[in-house]
Structure formats: C-alpha cells, structure tokens
C-alpha cells in the first residue's frame, strides 16, 4: 500500500494539522509515514498545503509531486492540485466552498459538503476532519480508530468531548461515496 496525499485549503482551515493527524494515524497503524508542509512565502488568507505519505515500505520522497489523493478545501486549491493528481487518483472536494467542477475525467471525485456537515455535527472547526473521514472511508489507508488515537497524541490538551465531536465528523465523512 502506498498513498501520497496533498491536503490544501485556506490558512486556518487546519489542512496542515490534518496532515499531521493523518501521518500520526499511519504511524499508529505501524506504517511508514512522512509529512511535509508548504513553507514558502505564503500570504495571510492565502492557501496552505501539505504532503503526506502513508506506505507499507520506507518512504523515499516526502514531497508528493503526483498525488494518489488530493483533498482540496477551498476554491483556489482546485486548479492548483487537480492537474497534479495521478490518473485514476482520488479528488476529495469540499463542495461547501468549491462550486467549480473538476475538468478531468480520468479521476474519481468525492464531493463532501464539509462545512455543512461540520455545522450539523456541532462545530465548523471539524470541517477538515469530515474530509479526512471521506479519505479514510474511500481509501482504507488508515482506520477511523487510528485517526482518533492520533488526535489524542497530536492534540494532547483536547477535551474528550472535542475528540468525540471530531470522531462524529470523521464518521459522517467516511459514509460518503465516490461519484
């Protein structure tokens, strides 16, 4: 198993933290993992992104140039990451904020109304977790339990009720299917 993932969105949506969570979840399950942030001269309110690799064998390159999966959380990230995606790859789109439809026909797409689902779950701050849930559900690269365990390691001061809320967000996302 090898999954090279790019997660992208506005600064503040938690895409970089979501990447750390994903890598930690892979590590919990005994996989080789890497995480690499975009740390260029980014603009406030601009886009942020990170690369995550989850693999059964050693990770050679932490910078994911041809992702198996791209999780895009905002409109400006779509034209940037859709073209990079591997043929047959998976595109997870936050349809709450992205109205444009992807142009490529050789990829799988899951439309996830992350913000709506997050609000329904109880906190808009779980929006990126909904997308992570969709990723876990569609690829099986990591389990929801592993992501929950990872939360306890990454966000050491998180209250149990916040963990439960995020777990709910993950489950809602995992239930969605590719179109």
């Amino acid at each position: 198993m090898y999954q090279g993932v790019r997660i992208a969105g506005f600064g503040g949506q938690g895409v970089v933290s979501a990447g750390v969570l994903l890598a930690q979840a892979g590590l919990v399950e005994g996989k080789a993992v890497s995480w690499f942030p975009s740390y260029g001269p980014e603009m406030r309110g601009g886009t942020a992104n990170c690369s995550v690799v989850i693999s059964d064998t050693e990770v050679s390159t932490p910078v994911v140039c041809v992702p198996d999966t791209a999780i895009v959380m905002n409109e400006p990230s779509l034209p940037k990451f859709e073209p990079m995606l591997k043929s047959g790859g998976l595109l997870i789109i936050n349809s709450s904020l992205i109205k444009t439809k992807p142009a490529r026909k050789d990829i799988k797409v899951i439309y996830v109304p992350c913000n709506e689902i997050a609000e329904k779950v109880g906190s808009l701050r779980t929006a990126t977790l909904v997308a992570l849930g969709a990723f876990a559900g569609a690829t099986g690269a990591v389990s929801l339990d592993a992501i929950e365990n990872a939360m306890k390691k990454v966000f050491k001061r998180a209250k149990p009720e916040m963990i439960a809320l995020n777990r709910k967000a993950l489950e809602e996302g995992a239930a969605l299917k590719a179109q």
Binding site: V20, A32, S34, W35, F36, P37, P62
Partner: peptide
C-alpha cells in the same frame, strides 16, 4: 530544508 521541515516516525 526538506529534512528539517519534514515529519516522520
């Protein structure tokens, strides 16, 4: 910079 910025186990 890549080694410095990346995370892994």
């Amino acid at each position: 910079g890549i080694l410095g910025q990346m995370m892994e186990g």
